[in-house]
């Protein structure tokens, strides 16, 4: 039989142990906030789902957004070394990419070199994909490869996924 005093001690010990466990878990180990969150320069906006006639080429508009202050090369950059924005759909997804119509790029001049004119996308841009879907529901993980820069520096090329639920009817 445990006496009332002992029970009280157990309860206090339990409360202390609980507080210690939580305190250890919450204690900050490094005071500084992360300096660079790895946010993508481009995000896919919509559509999340499209319904298309099965077996028939259909045009769909895909909306993307480039982060403020950044730009990416258009599909037709002005110089051959620059990496173009390229949309693709993986084989075997039940949806075939027949072609894509990219928007024209806008001119961008580097502040430190007015003679360099780049063809870029910034803000929101829409590319039109012509797809053919087999009958059924296909979760397509399409991709956009791009290379982003700001006025003075460039980030390595990157590929993002645009997940689209394509229903072929």
């Amino acid at each position: 039989m445990i006496a009332g005093k002992t029970k009280k001690r157990i309860a206090i010990a339990a409360a202390l142990a609980l507080a210690s466990a939580l305190a250890i878990g919450q204690r900050p180990l490094f005071d500084e906030a992360p300096r660079s969150a790895a946010k993508p320069a481009v995000v896919f906006l919509y559509p999340e789902q499209v319904t298309v006639p099965a077996g028939k080429p259909t045009k769909i508009d895909l909306h993307f957004r480039v982060a403020p202050g950044l730009h990416i090369n258009s599909h037709t950059p002005n110089e051959r070394e620059l990496i173009p924005a390229t949309f693709s759909i993986p084989a075997g997804s039940g949806v075939r990419l027949e072609g894509a119509v990219y928007p024209p790029g806008t001119d961008f001049t580097l502040p430190l070199d007015p003679s360099t004119k780049l063809s870029v996308y910034s803000g929101e841009f829409i590319l039109q994909a012509r797809i053919v879907a087999t009958p059924g529901d296909h979760l397509v993980e399409a991709t956009l490869r791009y290379q982003a820069c700001d006025s003075n520096a460039c980030m390595p090329p990157k590929t993002i996924t645009a997940a689209i639920d394509v229903i072929g009817k």
Binding site: E79, E81, L82, I83, L110, L112, D113, T116, L118, Q147, C149, N152, A153, C154, P156, P157
Partner: peptide, 10 residues
């Protein structure tokens, strides 16, 4: 630098 980097070229 990199070949795809326009500011590098400048």
């Amino acid at each position: 630098w990199a070949t795809w980097c326009a500011p590098c070229k400048v």
